[in-house]
Amino acid sequence: MNAVAKTVNLVKIYQDGAVPVPAVRGVDLQVEPGEFVAVMGPSGSGKSTLVHMLGGLDTRTSGEIWLDGKRVDTLSESAWALLRRKKIGFVFQFFNLVANMTVGDNVELPALLSGASPKVARRRRESLLAALNLTDRADAAPAQLSGGEQQRVALARALANEPALLLADEPTGNLDSRNTRDVLRLLGDVHKDGQTIVMVTHDARVASLADRVVSLFDGEIVDDGRIVRRRTGTAGEVIDLR
């Protein structure tokens, strides 16, 4: 089976002023189907840039990007847009919902754009809203929702086209702990159903749900490994952090 996403010696150098700023410096990463990968690292380590490049939201300077066995870094902007609609879901820290569309339409639109029939798109919208306990908010405008609700809508929207790859950039960065818990539960659920996820996060609770943590530092991968679940016998041992 093909890797869902793969990068080969991926480099991004921003050339804003006179001095070029390298953000990602030769990253080789392979994400297998069904994997949940958390990307961590200090700010400025290149995490967001990497994930944005995986979703075609930022162009690479050099190196290769492959999605589902197909090379994509050479695609035109319009070809990327098509590919994104079909294969990628994106969740950001600030929900980026379409303000003048209802919650339900926000969720339905990506399914329609990805080529689903109106009937299928509607069914998908209804099942996602139900799964996220948002059914009775379907006709509300995004601005009428709390931050946590908006992020749940954003997640539903990202999943509406049944993406091969769900990309998330600090999806809980703006949420209080109760809403974080809701979003976490959802991410855990879709992952259990086989959703491949690559997520940038600072939140260790979120990261500890992942199968694998990739640590970036100065634009390079400095650590890449599985999270060992120790399953200690007694609860007390876990709490007694000293």
């Binding site: 961590m40 260790a204 609770r205 990261a207 500890s208 749900l209 943590v213 640590s215 650590d223 490994g225 999270i227 060992v228 679940r229 120790r230 399953r231 200690t232 609860a235 876990v238 709490i239 952090l241």
Partner: peptide, 14 residues
């Protein structure tokens, strides 16, 4: 870091 994350994963489970 891996050790802390594995502790965190235990806490999540708990």
């Amino acid at each position: 870091r891996r050790h802390y994350l594995s502790l965190m994963s235990d806490l999540n489970e708990l």
